[in-house]
Design a protein around this nucleic acid. Structure first.
Lengths: 276, 276
DNA sequence: GACCTGCGGATTGTGCACAAAATCGGAGAG
DNA sequence: CTCTCCGATTTTGTGCACAATCCGCAGGTC
């Protein structure tokens, strides 16, 4: 998982300085705020700890060290991360709202297991958003800005290295980061944040529905995309991106239901009621 | 605000029945779960209370009874809603992740005040998503399915009634609900959920940046959109929707920064002093 | 007169303890 | 041997109390 946007709350200038009614305050209050800001950032605990745990669990889920359906007991997590149970509870609530874990009252937290329908929806949503991202990117000046080109190439290199090394886990994570990187360059942080969530959920969907056999190389497709983007031919990068997303989704086995709904139907058909 | 997707956690079949390792359990466990489900739904407290508070605060923010920057003290809210402070704290955490409130460590929760940049991003994101929604809608069979047409017409009627009555608050809420309704009909719950958040944040942006003077009637534009959609002319509805979103954004004053410093300058420039 | 400093009141953050609920195991009946 | 019932144990949910932090204000100092 990406890790950005994971923080519980951002202490930003925009937040601190737009408090209604305080806008007329003298410069003194502002200075105090300025000085207190670094102090807050220094200690690194508290606020930072939660973000760290969110990122840690998120990455574990994306890497499939925590497969869908895994129970996330509060006590265990608290022990592992060396924090109190309340902290873990807060983190789980956050992850639950991002649909990465499922909270069941009085039962606990589980790594979310998307339904086939939800998986399709997530990929559809990604197509919608990434289409906009690529549109924005195709409006970039050619040749691409130095920083963008450099970062993209560096990322491609890392992906290919992971591919050569056969490090599947790293490849999965890098693949998500690639799309995240593109969204960041598109210049809309809001859209990028939304896409970040969708990428996380894609990882979940892939973990839940991946075919054993299939395995096409994202690194190659990503490289082709970057080359098309650099070429500046209108629509070339877009077409590759759409095909890429289709390809990723096509590798999933969304027809075979691993979701319980159908199982339950058969259960009810067999035993109408009273089986308690 | 919409209220859907506000629940902390959904107890869904998919969630209950996809717990890893339990799928092989006998029907006994499943039946027990089935029987306990209604019981959980009956008491209506606990889980439901949080969703209710989230919706309540969310609506208050969208209606601008709670303008951006307003402090949301835990104690006060706890008293108002008749729940404990921890409950309120949880709700605020939820709202904070949806960017509707801003949490500042050791300072408390405030109704979020988006920056001009963020406001622009939110509207851009809406254009991206609603474009996809309208695309899906334009693929609907003509004439429109009965239920869809009926609900749309009913909604238009309510909007126009609110418009006639001059009920600005209701009009704002209904306007958001209209877009939400369209997204629901598009058939992608994930996208609809994302749009729901964006609509909430739009309300916030409008509250923060609305021009005093401007006031075009959404109800009229909504009606024209529905008529275009029913006509089935390809692209007609899409064009109207894009123009509508542009129009809404154009009504905002995103150039004047609501940043305290500059506001003060203009205030002093216009009226040296003494004038109310 | 302006600025720094210390203090009181209020608000938020956190750990803890207890209550509620579910799971798991065994005992007993059919 | 299987199913059902039931109690012990584990896990989650919630309220409470205390600690930490911040704001406003008064007093002192340059």
């Amino acid at each position: 998982m990406h890790g950005q946007g994971a923080a519980v709350a951002f202490v930003r200038w925009s937040g601190l300085c737009t408090i209604r009614g305080n806008e007329l305050n003298s410069a003194r209050a502002i200075m105090k705020t300025v000085l207190s800001a670094p102090r807050r950032a220094v200690r690194g605990r508290g606020e930072g700890a939660e973000a760290r745990i969110v990122r840690s669990i998120g990455e574990a889920i994306a890497d499939r060290r925590l497969p869908p359906g895994t129970k996330l007991a509060e006590e265990s997590l608290a022990e592992v991360f060396g924090v109190s149970r309340e902290r873990v509870r807060k983190v789980l609530l956050l992850l639950a709202q991002r649909r990465v874990v499922t909270l069941i009252p009085n039962r606990g937290a589980f790594v979310a297991k998307p339904t086939a329908r939800e998986a399709r929806e997530v990929f559809e949503a990604r197509r919608v958003i990434e289409r906009a991202v690529v549109e924005a990117l195709e409006c970039s000046p050619r040749p691409l800005p130095d920083e963008m080109a450099a970062k993209l190439r560096a990322h491609l290199a890392r992906e290919e290295e992971a591919d050569r090394a056969g490090d599947r886990m790293a490849l999965i994570r890098l693949s998500g980061q690639f799309h995240q990187l593109l969204a960041d360059f598109a210049g809309n942080a809001t859209l990028a944040g939304i896409l970040a969530d969708l990428i996380d959920r894609s990882s979940l969907a892939i973990a839940a529905f991946e075919r054993r056999s299939s395995h096409s190389c994202s690194a190659t497709e990503h490289r082709r995309f970057v080359e098309a983007l650099e070429s500046g031919r209108p629509g070339a990068a877009m077409r590759l991106m759409m095909e890429h997303l289709d390809e990723v989704e096509r590798q999933l086995d969304l027809d075979a239901r691993s979701d319980g709904a159908v199982d339950l139907k058969s259960v009810f058909a067999d035993r109408p009621e009273g089986a308690t």
